[in-house]
Every structure is written in C-alpha cells, then in structure tokens.
Amino acid sequence: MSGTPRDAVLGALRRATGRDANMAEAAAAVRTRLAAHARNTIPARGLRETQGLLELFTEQARGVDASVAIVDDFGAVPGAVADYLRGENLPTRLRMAPDPRLDACPWDDAPTLEITRGKGEAEDVVALTGAFAGVAETGTLMLISGPDSPTTLNFLPDAHIVVLNAADLVGCYEDGWDRLRATGRMPRSVNFITGPSRSADIEQTLQLGAHGPRWLHIVVVAGGAATKDPGDG
C-alpha cells in the first residue's frame, strides 16, 4: 500500500482524516470548491467599478514608491516615456516588449529614444512593457508572461516603465483573476508588481533596487476607454 513516497504520504493523510469512510463526499466538496472558486471578503476599498479606480490606483502606487503619469491616449505614450527618462536622467536606450499595442504607438514622435524589442538582457538599463491589468486596492500591476510580454523585462533592468490602459484597471485581485480566466489561458508567470524592488536586509534600512528595478514608472492611458466596464470578464 505504501510503495512510493507519494502513496505513503497520501496514505498517512487518508488514515488521519478517516478518508475511507467519507471519500465520496470529501472529493465532491473539493471538486465543488475548486470549480466555484468563490470569493471571500473583499476589502471595501477594492469594491469599486470604474469610478475612483484611477485615483485609488495612483495613490496606492505612489505610496509604494512607483511614479505615475497619466496621458490621454496611446499617441501620447512616446512623449511621456521620453519625458520620464529625461527627468530621471536615465539613458534613452530601451528594450521594449514585442507588444502590438506598444508597437502601434507613434515612436517617431520621440526621436531621442533608441528602441530594441525582445526579452530582457544583462545590459538593459530601461525596459518598457504593457500590463494585463492594474489592481487599484494596492496599486498593483498584473503582468502575464507570453510572447508579447517576456518576464525578464520586469526584473532585469534598472528602470521598468509600464504602459497601463485605464480600461484594464480593476478594483481587487479577484477581478484580475476573473479577467485572466476569461482569456482561457494560464500563462507560465503571473507577476503582481507593487512598487519597485526593495530590501531592508541591511540594518532594517529600506533600499530600492535590490535585484529588480530601482525605478518603476507607470504610464496610464486614461483615454475614452476608461468608460468600458472593467469588472466584467
């Protein structure tokens, strides 16, 4: 009965829970719970629809040392990126995620930027990516891995610039999960990013930029799309 370590562990657990006597109902309970993925209590602050999402997201993100710029439409993204890099005195070479929405931006409007596309490399100083969603309750970005969003871009560079469509703002993590389920795929990585990298491991002194980016800049495209229902996915 306990041939493999797997059998031994599961056997011990089943004996301890008297599983033989209640297998059918226990298995049904587990199946039901997994299928229902019911929500537990969601903090009131995350229970908002369109109204106030951007304000809350911005406030929370700034509270964890991210910077936020709000632009009207994707057409204004190149200028906002160039402005940010100039303001922070960061290099104008950047590695951009091969994301069609980013590609569609009028990069010719920002001729100082030197853009290459692809995954993150050791020498990258600045990365530019999109985001799957923004979660207002804690100012958290939700990025998912895929051919248009390589994970290395989120962690290797010194500065990470994220373009977030305001239509992709949600109130709480659960809204984000529902949106992801609606896409019908589960990516290798879902990265919840809340502010830049940090460490307090040396004498409890908070330092930004431990291994991941020291700068996290979020360009929110507020455009008319913000009226789209964000929670329905």
Partner: peptide
C-alpha cells in the same frame, strides 16, 4: 513588491 504565480515551464511561444 513581487508576488509571482508560476505555472509549469515556459510555453512554446514564450521568449524566456
């Protein structure tokens, strides 16, 4: 700062 959900190895079309 980082909460990461990892599911399986990279997908066929992933770059990393």
């Amino acid at each position: 700062s980082y909460t990461t959900f990892s599911t399986g190895p990279r997908r066929g079309e992933d770059l990393d």
